[in-house]
Nucleic acid binder design. Structure first.
Lengths: 195, 195
DNA sequence: GGCCATTTAGATAGATCGTTCTAGTAGTTC
DNA sequence: GAACTACTAGAACGATCTATCTAAATGGCC
């Protein structure tokens, strides 16, 4: 079955978009890395690069959301989970020479003003992350409003930290952003427990 | 004097890089918007697009740093200044159809893994912002370590909020990140005043 | 006016982009 | 084994990219 060719293409595009964005990645490069011919790309993605791009964003974003969910699952203490997630993100950056950060942030910034389909794909991913995180935080006894605010501030901190860490080649921003998120979450949880 | 042609080119590239990144912006588009011919570009920037790119990043980053400095100058109360800055950023997003966010974040994410000169330009800008902010926070009586942590967390929150706000076409992330930064700053200041 | 460096102007080159095209191979079903 | 679908394979195309090139206009200085 050639079904794994499609997945190889999506894996390659996911990695490349993450490192150099959509515009900076040619279809030839994607196919070379996937070991697939042109024919396969336009067989699996009749819409060409833009269809591949949108599907890559949704898939990579979904997988990254799963990863986050594993760290902050219902069976672990929330603040420690978040702490571990940021620590893991910092370690990944170090191990990959500051290449592997958020899988969709580069594409989101590049394309949001010029390609509505791509913007929507990114927006759907961010919304799913926010909604998933909010539900988890509500389980801890926070109001929906407080939970949503905390989740958004955490994702903002993470995304911004990736921007700085990649440019500075330092994990300090990720670590500082992680500390800030953990502190905010602990403060909110202890305040909620006080009533 | 044709000196303003160079500035018109830098203005155009600054705006375009901010919206669609380095890879997504062609030199033809830059020159068309600046109303300048090819000859001028390679006269003022013999190194071509990459030299223009690096200079654009440094210039746009410097100007944005000035803007931040105006909001958080020594004559205004720090937390209110930061609050006003985030509010201003949100308003700018709304007014520009979510186009005008950070002038260098897109380029930083796109290029950090593939072009060392461009990465360095971005890193220099971020470092200048961090150092400038840290000095300002130290004036308020915070330790250098605390000050640096707060500034980095604030910039991370801002940059990440831009990513989300642009994709979601909503100012909520910028507002939430602003609240988080203000809260962290006020907490640190009141703690420092307690001794 | 004559001279010289600076800047403008755009045609052109050569590489690379995404896409299309035709042809061929594998695998399944009748 | 014939017919059909799914997929592979890569040459070729037109568009677009950055960069180069030659020639001319411009502006201060003697």
């Amino acid at each position: 079955m050639g079904n794994d060719t499609k997945e190889r293409i999506l894996d390659s595009s996911g990695e490349l978009f993450r490192r150099q964005g959509y515009m900076g990645t040619g279809v030839k490069q994607i196919l070379a890395e996937a070991g697939a011919p042109f024919g396969s790309l336009y067989h699996f993605f009749p819409g060409g690069k833009s269809e591949l791009g949108a599907e890559t964003v949704r898939r990579s974003g979904f997988l990254y959301g799963l990863l986050l969910g594993e760290y902050a699952g219902p069976e672990v203490e929330l603040a420690s989970g978040i702490r571990a997630f940021f620590a893991g993100a910092a370690e990944t950056l170090r191990e990959t020479d500051y290449a592997d950060a958020c899988p969709i942030a580069t594409v989101a910034l590049e394309m949001s003003s010029s390609d509505e389909e791509m913007r929507l794909a990114c927006a759907d991913v961010f919304e799913a992350w926010i909604d998933g995180g909010t539900a988890r935080f509500v389980e801890e006894g926070l109001s929906a409003e407080t939970a949503r605010g905390l989740v958004i501030q955490m994702i903002c901190g993470l995304e911004g930290a990736f921007v700085l860490s990649r440019a500075l080649r330092s994990t300090e921003p990720v670590e500082r952003a992680g500390e800030a998120s953990v502190a905010a979450i602990e403060a909110a949880l202890s305040q909620a427990a006080d009533r």
